[in-house]
């Protein structure tokens, strides 16, 4: 019975919302760790070393996260295709901007940019990390993370790409985060509060990531 929820349109939408919220939780955690790099090399190294070597994080949480990301964007593309087919022949004139925001109508685009960014981000950090730990099996060095981080942001090109990508993430979240609560079924007296919270979150977290990137670019 419970599984059959997900065969329905509402159920697929629910999976989209739940995977989105899961990614938001991950994003928050990622931000809280990264921001420490701005004020303390020790704390950043300590947390990164912990995340990188704790077996639960590495072999339980990390696969769940990767599954979550892949699930979210595959489902996103799948629903986009279904939705386009539901229209059939399109309108010759369609004034979409008259009744819905650009952000809400272009989730697939903002999500697509974030996906491209994720490829770059994996190539930048995840691939070298996996290589270091599991392929070349280099000696454990709890103090290497901070150096690796600031080295990446020496490049103004990379810093710019990161910054622009986070703007798109902000756009994606500005619709997606509050929308996911509607999907779960919350659109009542608490919704105003949720709307404000998700709005502030969607602006400040991506802005925080941009700040971290630019900070290291300018400081080193």
């Amino acid at each position: 019975m419970l599984i059959s929820i997900f065969k329905s349109s509402i159920g697929k939408k629910l999976l989209m919302a739940l995977s989105g919220i899961f990614l938001v939780v991950f994003l928050t955690q990622h931000f809280l760790i990264n921001i420490t790099s701005v004020f303390s090399e020790e704390i950043f190294n300590f947390l990164s070393h912990f995340m990188g070597n704790n077996p639960i994080v590495q072999f339980v949480l990390q696969p769940i996260l990767i599954f979550g990301v892949i699930f979210h964007f595959v489902m996103g593309f799948y629903l986009e295709i279904i939705n386009r087919k539901s229209r059939g022949r399109g309108y010759t004139r369609y004034a979409g901007g008259q009744n819905a925001s650009w952000i809400s109508r272009n989730m697939i685009f903002s999500g697509g940019v974030v996906l491209l960014f994720l490829f770059l981000h994996f190539y930048d950090f995840w691939v070298p990390e996996m290589n270091y730990k599991y392929v070349e099996v280099l000696p454990i060095d709890p103090d290497r993370y901070y150096e690796e981080l600031i080295h990446k942001f020496e490049s103004p090109v990379r810093t710019s790409i990161y910054s622009v990508s986070f703007i798109f993430l902000a756009l994606h979240l500005l619709h997606g985060f509050s929308s996911s609560f509607k999907t779960i079924g919350v659109n009542s007296k608490y919704y105003k509060l949720i709307k404000s919270f998700t709005f502030i979150f969607s602006i400040f977290i991506p802005l925080g990531f941009i700040f971290i990137a630019i900070f290291h670019n300018l400081m080193h």
Partner: peptide
């Protein structure tokens, strides 16, 4: 019919002002 993505266009165009809150 397609899947709702909460753009809210429907409630703007609805001649009777049916609220999107009904979807939640």
């Amino acid at each position: 019919f397609g899947n709702c993505t909460n753009t809210g266009a429907c409630e703007v165009e609805c001649p009777k002002g049916i609220s999107i809150k009904n979807i939640a």
